[in-house]
């Protein structure tokens, strides 16, 4: 195979502002102790693989995948909710046609997973996994049930605030994001070391959805809005002819 001459590549993606992401070593979240890398990360000038990514679209989604409430023998138990919002990059540009995968506990706070053994009731009609793709404006919508809080062993009387795990691909490897969406005014936030590990309070709030009466469907489901912001391109293009722009 002959390899073409390497083309000039875009400069890459702007890193999140300091304080946006939790330090990998966050001792209050005990599992980081044996797992967070101890050596500094090595800055990586992005190559083609970091500037591209799998562009999963509608081919990855079957009808009904965005509705988690329908089980084999009926409706999932719990408060039915719509979770919807928009995926944009840091410049505010919509991120269209991108795969969103979610997973969550059921209304009792129990995951349908072998390793989840706490005595919350399982629901035969709730698997807790869903997926969808954003539309041309970057908008997405799920129908699910509100997850319950669940206990875990991190500290005495530790409970995770209710949350939905969310995975997004964006348009490139550099935009890949896995995070969690929370619900407004959860009284368990104060003792949660996972949300609490995010240093910047404004960044923390970006993971908390908002109750949105416009999304609420009469006699059907409560609505929560949650917009997601992925990294955006660095402002300065790699090749500005005749310019040395440090702006």
């Amino acid at each position: 195979m002959t390899t073409p001459e390497p083309a000039g590549l875009p400069a890459g993606y702007a890193p999140p502002a300091p304080g946006t992401n939790a330090p990998l070593a966050s001792p209050a979240y005990r599992s980081t102790g044996g797992r967070a890398p101890s050596r500094p990360l090595v800055p990586l000038p992005p190559g083609l693989h970091e500037l591209t990514g799998p562009l999963f679209g509608a081919d990855r989604v079957r009808p009904g995948d965005a509705d988690l409430t329908r089980g084999p023998s009926g409706e999932a138990v719990g408060q039915r909710i719509v979770v919807a919002g928009r995926v944009v990059d840091a410049d505010g540009r919509p991120v269209p046609d991108t795969l969103i995968e979610i997973w969550q506990a059921n209304a009792s706070g129990r995951y349908r997973h072998d390793r989840d053994r706490w005595p919350g009731a399982l629901d035969p009609n709730f698997t807790g996994a869903g997926r969808t793709v954003t539309d041309a404006e970057g908008c997405y919508r799920f129908l699910t049930v509100r997850p319950g809080a669940y206990p875990w062993g991190n500290h005495t009387n530790a409970w995770r605030p209710a949350h939905i795990h969310v995975s997004l691909f964006g348009r490139s490897f550099s935009q890949r994001l896995v995070t969690q969406m929370y619900f407004p005014d959860d009284p368990l936030f104060f003792q949660d070391p996972i949300l609490g590990a995010i240093p910047d309070p404004a960044a923390r709030r970006r993971l908390v959805s908002a109750y949105d009466h416009d999304l609420t469907e009469a006699e059907w489901a409560l609505g929560f809005r949650w917009d997601i912001v992925l990294r955006g391109p660095l402002a300065v293009p790699f090749e500005q002819p005749g310019e040395d722009d440090h702006g």
Partner: peptide, 26 residues
Amino acid sequence: PTVMTSGATFGVSPSQTVGPFLHLAL
């Protein structure tokens, strides 16, 4: 959100752990 022209950026959504039950979706 509004599409911004120049100088303004949206704060990026922070990352969180996949947790122990990632197999449900991943």
